[in-house]
Structures are given as C-alpha cells and as structure tokens.
Write a protein that binds this DNA or RNA. Structure first.
Length: 257
DNA sequence: ATGGCGCCACATTGGCGA
C-alpha cells in the first residue's frame, strides 16, 4: 500500500498537478491538506475518472482536508473527537484494514500569538484523541502537514530558525508526544539524503536554494512501521510549473507482512 | 532591512500561510 500526504495549497489551482501525481506515482491513498474548497466545489468527477474514491471536509479560503483512495473507505470521521474546532483540519477513514488519519495541523503564526496558543491546544487534543484511536485501530497511520520540524536536521538553517514558530521547543514537545503514543516517523526508519525538506518558501528562491523545512510527515504505529519498506519526499513535484510550496511525502507498506 | 511569493476574497489591497 503506497500512502501519500500532500499540502496542495488550493486544490482548485493544483488539480492538474494532483492528477499528474496520481497518474505517475500511482499511490493507493492520498491525504490532501489545504484544499481551500467548500464540499460542493470538490472536483469529484476528475478524481473519480483517475480511479479514486474520495472523502473530504472543506471550507472557503483556508484549511480543508481530503482522502483519496483506490479501495473503498469505511468509518469516515471528521474532526477531532471531543474537541470543538470550526476549522476543517482532520479526516479519517479505514482502508483495507488500515486506519488512515489525515491532518492539517495549525501553523501557529508566531510564538506566543493567539494562533500559537491554539496550535498547542490543538496538538494536545489530537494526542488525546489519537491515544484512543490507536487502542481501537492497532494499524494506524497519521499523515499530513504537521507544521513542526521535529529536529534541527529538518531545518535548512537551524541558527536562523531557533525558537521560532514551527521549530520551538513547545511545538517539538507536542510532536514528540505523538511519537510517545507509539507512532514512528516513517521518514527516519530509513537512511535519507541530508537536507531533505518537504516545504520551501515561495519567496527568496527558497526551493532553488533548498532553504526548506521538513514539516510534512507520515507517522505509523508499530505494526505498520515494521511493514514499511520506504518513506521519501517526492521533491520533483515541487519543480513543476505552478507548484504547491509543499512536496508530497510518500511511504510504502508491505501489507502481506 | 521582517521585505520577498502565491492564494483567496465583501478584491484591485490586505490577511494569511510557514
């Protein structure tokens, strides 16, 4: 099972690139973030024509998540249980016995801001909910834009970023709390090229200079981590014309194990 | 020097993302 997560930064704009991704990479499951579409505007026909079923939860202008899958999805859930959040950031579904949770974690804007406080609370609610979900579904994957660079090696210039949003100790502690639930960062299960990132600023030739951050992740419970055969950042997608500022992240699970 | 780029909407400028 090939699983992908991609912050498309507007599905309306990025639909051609998504269809390219589906056709050339042939993922089984794709978790999308920042679709920025209300549900009545979701491009169902084009995605169905590409051979995928889909579930989605969106809103105007900001946020919005979706899961695309070749196989049927069941037990679809929207949002974090017991956490009141009007922003559309979470959708989950069961696919071939794997519980897939797609997340668009808050950005946090700047350390100490109201949005930062909300980000920390949001992560606490996510962890509390995932603890129950993992107990219910031992084979669980959490994929998406976490808006946290877990370690300094996930940051192009750690000295320039020290203490700022996306890398602050409090944010990294929230990410670690997810790992402490028994989740594994699939990317770190394998040897990886140095300076591998998943997001690059549109400004300042960020991509050309590889000034990026690794903030998009695929986290796996132990049964899936043991069956994981690869986990990469699909960097070439960031080179396309009119790219998202994020590249997709992709992990493969050997479901016969 | 806190800018830049790209996307969105009560648009032709401002808010936001990261």
């Amino acid at each position: 099972m090939k699983l992908a997560a991609w912050n498309v930064n507007s599905l309306k704009v990025r639909l051609p690139q998504l269809l390219d991704f589906l056709a050339t990479r042939s993922p089984d499951v794709v978790c999308l973030q920042e679709t920025k579409l209300t549900d009545d505007c979701f491009p169902c026909a084009e995605i169905e024509a590409a051979g995928y079923q889909m579930v989605y939860s969106g809103q105007k202008t900001y946020n919005g998540v979706a899961i695309l899958s070749r196989a049927p999805m069941s037990d679809v859930c929207i949002g974090i249980a017991n956490f009141d959040d009007e922003l559309k950031r979470v959708i989950g579904a069961t696919i071939d016995g794997v519980r897939v949770v797609c997340v668009y974690c808050p950005n946090g804007q700047s350390v100490g801001s109201d949005k930062y406080i909300y980000k920390l609370k949001w992560f606490d609610a996510l962890a509390a909910w995932l603890k129950d979900e993992i107990a219910r579904y031992p084979k669980l994957a959490v994929l998406g834009d976490f808006n946290v660079a877990p370690e300094d090696r996930d940051v192009h210039d750690p000295a320039a970023w020290v203490g700022s949003v996306l890398v602050s100790d409090e944010e990294r502690a929230r990410f670690q709390a997810l790992l402490d639930l028994g989740l594994h960062d699939s990317f770190r299960l394998f040897d990886q090229p140095e300076k591998t990132y998943s997001w690059w600023d549109y400004r300042m030739l960020g991509f050309q200079r590889n000034q990026g951050l690794r903030i998009d992740h695929i986290l796996l419970t132990a049964p899936l981590a043991q069956a994981c055969t690869s986990s990469i950042v699909d960097r070439p997608m960031r080179k396309l014309e009119r790219p998202s500022d994020h590249a997709p992240v992709v992990a493969e699970i050997d479901t016969t194990r």
